[in-house]
Structure formats: C-alpha cells, structure tokens
Design a protein around this nucleic acid. Structure first.
Lengths: 205, 205
DNA sequence: CTATGTTAGACAGTGTTGGTATCCAAAAGC
DNA sequence: GCTTTTGGATACCAACACTGTCTAACATAG
C-alpha cells in the first residue's frame, strides 16, 4: 500500500506519517522508485502503536523511539522487554550507574524482597528520586508502606505476565506486551483514583 | 520574606516565581507597597509543592492549577480531595457525563466491585478510553484480569489512606495527601516495572 | 503519449508550553 | 542621596509535535 492508503486506514495525516518516518518511529517502506514506496500491514500496526503511545500514554516522540528500538532489539529475549525504560530518562547503555539520590533505600527494598533486577534499570533511579523528593517535602513514605506497595506491584506484575501468550511471532508479541504494559499505566492510575475515592467514602461513611 | 528570599530558599529563580504568580499557581504575597510584597512559609511550601508536581510528576501548569484549586476548595472535606482529577482531562463541573467510549465496561466493573464513586469522576473516562484503545489494537484486557487489577488498586488505596493522619491543619493535610497520591504515581509505575523485570526473570529462569 | 494526480524527501512555518530577560517606576536600606 | 531590590508588564526564547509548501519523479487513465 502507498502512503495515502496508510493514512486513510490509520486516520493519521500523511504529513504526520512523514514526520514519524523522519523521526524514525516508522521504518521506511520498500522503495519501488525515487518517489514511491510500498508499505504493509506491519507498518499499519506500528503506526497505530505509535499513535497510542504518544496519544494515550503521552510519551514524547524521543521516548517512543527509544522504547520501540528496545522492543525491536530484544524481541526474542522477552524478559528484557518488560523491564524497559518507558519512564522519564533516556537509557545510556554506556553510562555507569550514576550516583543517584535515594539509591540506598531502593537497593535495600529490592534486596529485602529478593527481587532480581538489573543494576542499571532506570526505574531504580525514578523510584529513588521520587522517594527522595517526597521525603524532602515532609511526606516521607515509611519503610512498611513502601514494602506494601512493592508487594502489590509484585502481584500486578504477575497479572501482567499471565496475560502474555507465548504464541505469535516475537515482534508482534513484543509489541502486544508493550501495549499491555505501557498503555495500561493510565488505566492503573485511574483505577487507583477510583479506589481511593471509594475507600475514602467507605471510611467517612 | 521577600521574593528574593523565597527564591533563595526554594532554589526557584525569581522570574519563574513571577511566572507562577501570573499563572495563579501561587497566591500573591501580602502587598506592603506598590513594589513590595511579603511572602510566608505557606508560600514556600506551596512553591515546593508546585515544583514537585510539575517537575517530578510532569503535570502541566494548567493541570497543576486545577489540582491546587480543588485542594483549596475541598480542604476540609478530605474525602473529595483524594478522588480528584490529577489525570488528563480538565474537570468541567457543569458538563454532563459525555457519552464516553468504554463507559459501559467501567460501569459494570465498578458495580461488580460495589465501589461507590461519583458518576462524573474523570478517572472513569480515562479508564474507559484506555481499555477501548487497547481493545481496538488487539490487546484486549479480559474481564478477569481487569478485576484483578481493580482489586490490587483497592488494596493500594487502603495503603494510601492509612498513611494520612487526621491531625495537622486541613490545608497542610490536604497538601500532604496530594503529595502522597500524585507524586507516588511515578514511584508506583517504577515499582511495577521493577516487579515485571523480576517476575520475568523468575519465569524464564 | 499526454493530462492529471500522487509521492518521497527537504525544508520552512505554526501553535502551544514552560520558562527567561528586560524594563520601569517605586520603594528599601544604608 | 544613592545603590539595590521589588512588582508588574511585556517581550523574547527554545523545545516540541506537527503542518504546509515545494520539487522532481513517478503512476495511471484515456
């Protein structure tokens, strides 16, 4: 299919598709001539994925590019895919684990729970910084509470992983896992807000 | 204290403080003359809060303004504060609950769990839309899995509410609750990512 | 083969956002 | 008095996610 059909089927303007091509969020189509290229279903899937990451989850274009790159790179070693960045900071393969604030507490928590996670997982830094900020603002999260949250996260992860089926080809599979992990984020936060409202109503009844 | 001291103590440039004043994220100080105003500790607290919401959580200035406004308005009826927007869309008190996509499924879930949440809670729409998007991309979340996530959210909310202590003055209390709910969001997502990596490692061991 | 329309690729322009910088007249502090 | 600081207004800026315009090379219908 040509770009106009890709646009029609996805609802994304051609100008925007060209932008995504420039930004390497989409691989170029198979060029059939100097001013013609052929796209297929995988481009369409990818385009819809990109739109969801940017539109629903609110990822930036550069964050999206990184996530997609990581998925493509580790398509078969699925285990890696799920522990991805997806957060704020970009991954720097080369950089040594910077002297992050609050790292000690995070290390302690992970050790206590017996979790096996990479030393350079960016989520460590995000967690450490957030806890540090909360502390500095006088809203410290106690060790016990943090442990409670971590145990709930553990059970959330079990649910997450239960939903992957090991069939389908690796790339499509990885894309689906990405959808379920990243796009679920707003949904999980929304559920928490609803649950808070409910719990608050229950207690103040 | 004057603006320069506010700036020094918070680490925020005076130009930015002025910007926040313009944007009504900060209430004006007590004017002592045409070109002089006096700020106090509450301004400092508020400023740090604003910086955390914008910097750590990544809220937009307008979303921050809305959240702060809601906190100020419902400072004493704490129950309302926690069920707040904090998400994407702005609250429109007047608007009727628009014909949101996926609302039926969300209603069903909330009914099934016996939750008591406002009909106009924006989190309903966020949840519905996200589930709808996932479905349209072929990564539907099953009813059972959704229920599982909801039950974990319920327990997260219990943890959240357990951490509020009923002392302290209402406004400061509300601000602290806001910190714990909103700023914890990146931390919870980071915990989930770490837990996913761990669980994935466990399964592929 | 021609007329009409489409396309890749390059590049400039747009609107929004979150700040900065500059300026001014009016205090403040010495 | 004289330097410094301030509030308030306005202008400016860079990043971001597009969007529009142009050109030369094609595709296809008649």
């Amino acid at each position: 299919m040509r770009i106009s059909e890709l646009s029609r089927r996805s609802g994304v303007p051609t100008a925007t598709i060209k932008y995504y091509l420039r930004e390497r969020l989409l691989s170029p189509g198979r060029a059939t001539a100097a001013t013609q290229a052929e796209y297929d279903e995988s481009h369409l899937r990818r385009l819809r994925l990109v739109r969801a990451l940017i539109g629903v989850r609110g990822l930036s274009v550069s964050a999206t590019r990184e996530v997609l790159g990581a998925v493509a790179a580790h398509a078969e070693e699925r285990h890696q895919v799920l522990g991805l960045v997806l957060g704020a900071r970009p991954v720097d393969e080369e950089a040594e684990p910077a002297p992050a604030p609050g790292a000690a507490e995070v290390d302690a928590l992970i050790g206590e729970l017996g979790w096996e996670v990479s030393e350079r997982a960016p989520a460590r830094a995000v967690l450490g910084e957030t806890l540090e900020t909360l502390r500095s603002l006088g809203a410290e999260v106690s060790r016990g509470a943090l442990r409670g949250y971590a145990e709930l996260a553990e059970r959330t992860a079990v649910l997450d992983l239960d939903q992957l089926d090991p069939d389908a080809d690796p790339l499509e599979q990885a894309e689906r896992a990405l959808l379920r992990t990243v796009l679920m984020e707003p949904a999980l936060l929304a559920l928490r807000r609803l649950a808070q409202e409910n719990e608050s109503a229950r207690r103040n009844a």
